[in-house]
Nucleic acid binder design. Structure first.
Lengths: 207, 207
DNA sequence: ATTTAGTTTAACTATTTGGTTAATTAATAA
DNA sequence: TTATTAATTAACCAAATAGTTAAACTAAAT
């Protein structure tokens, strides 16, 4: 019973890695067991099927993503010159520290897997919706008061997420296109952060 | 002999659809055959294995993508107020007319599938590299001459592609976040195009 | 008419894969 | 100690799946 919790955790860790690397369909239960150093039957002992295992992994990982979205968009007062750099920095740092999230997302987003659909809907409703609505209002208000130019809040948020997330989404292709840039990840992300903040601030602050 | 070419084509079309919907691992040869209205053995008659079929499909689809990149970045003279709106419009229109490309890309980009890696490298080298280098020079020159602000050309190109591609990459999630926006695709894309061009121009033209 | 080459099919095989089971070994409580 | 419960294992199974084959069909070329 001492090792039991640890076995469960090992399986979860191994499963996360395998699902990220191979996707749901490519993932093999035997490989998960092997990497966890456990017997395959133990997976069915703790989880009951591949589906339930995947759902557990997926939910756990994506709840942290959606919680982060909550924090990201939790703005008491909307001062663009503070808010935007902070948001970009937090977002990029978070994604960097959780590299499996954008990967799993890219893999499963177009899969039509009903588990994915259900979990995304539920998590979004629970933890992101209210913050998003709040930020939309902030942006609209800031536009009216002349703090920033008048822009469609939905489009701005979309642009924000695109600029940040895309960095990680397309890493495998970009590292082919500009191999030099990817030699030093720290430097790359610092430059990326600067470029994104620069574009956003310059593109939003009124002249 | 009359139907032969047609059978081959039907298999290719069906395979494209199935690979996009289910990914490489999720795709079933039987389903491809069924959708093509052909016997499964015909797939192995024209192509020799699942791998070779996938490579043919993937190469064909992605060569059009990389060719498009060539056209996109083929700029005789770099006037930002003409070039940027044109580029965004061409890119979004192209992606809209080839919806399977971003989907397949998102699906396979993190798969570590050696076929994907090889094809991407080769296509990029053949059809995109020279244009990309050319555009980087254009942007650098435009920065020096004061036509636009001084920005890192690599980061600008990255931002451009991110803003455009992300629209299609994350459609399944965004349609959960803002379901109303997705009721009218034409309107959505028009607004998206406007917002992207607006941000880029305003963020690049010197004050 | 007969050969020849390309095309198509149904039945088949070997292997993989998700999932099960029955027996065995710890751990815990009485 | 002993009865009970939880954890672990090896062997197994049924279904699915990529891939094969040998025979049949088609249509032109000789």
């Amino acid at each position: 019973m001492k090792e039991s919790e640890s076995t469960r955790e090992k399986i979860k860790e191994a499963a996360t890695a395998v699902f990220v690397e191979r996707g749901y369909d490519g993932a093999r239960m035997q490989e998960i067991a092997d990497r966890a150093g456990a017997n395959k039957a133990m997976i069915y002992y703790y989880f009951n099927s591949k589906d339930e295992l995947f759902e557990a992994i997926f939910t756990e990982n994506f709840s942290t993503l959606f919680e982060m979205f909550g924090k990201l968009f939790d703005v008491p007062d909307f001062n663009p010159e503070e808010f935007l750099p902070r948001l970009v920095h937090l977002h990029l740092t978070f994604l960097r520290n959780h590299p499996h999230l954008p990967r799993m997302m890219a893999r499963e987003i177009h899969s039509n897997n009903p588990i994915v659909d259900r979990v995304v809907r539920q998590l979004f409703k629970e933890s992101a919706r209210p913050f998003l609505d709040e930020v939309q209002k902030h942006i609209a208000r800031a536009g009216k008061s002349g703090l920033i130019r008048k822009v469609d809040p939905v489009q701005l948020i979309w642009n924000l997420i695109a600029l940040n997330l895309f960095t990680f989404f397309t890493e495998p292709i970009m590292s082919v296109v500009w191999p030099d840039q990817f030699a030093d990840t720290d430097k790359l992300l610092a430059e990326r952060e600067r470029a994104i903040v620069d574009l956003l601030l310059y593109g939003l602050l009124p002249r």
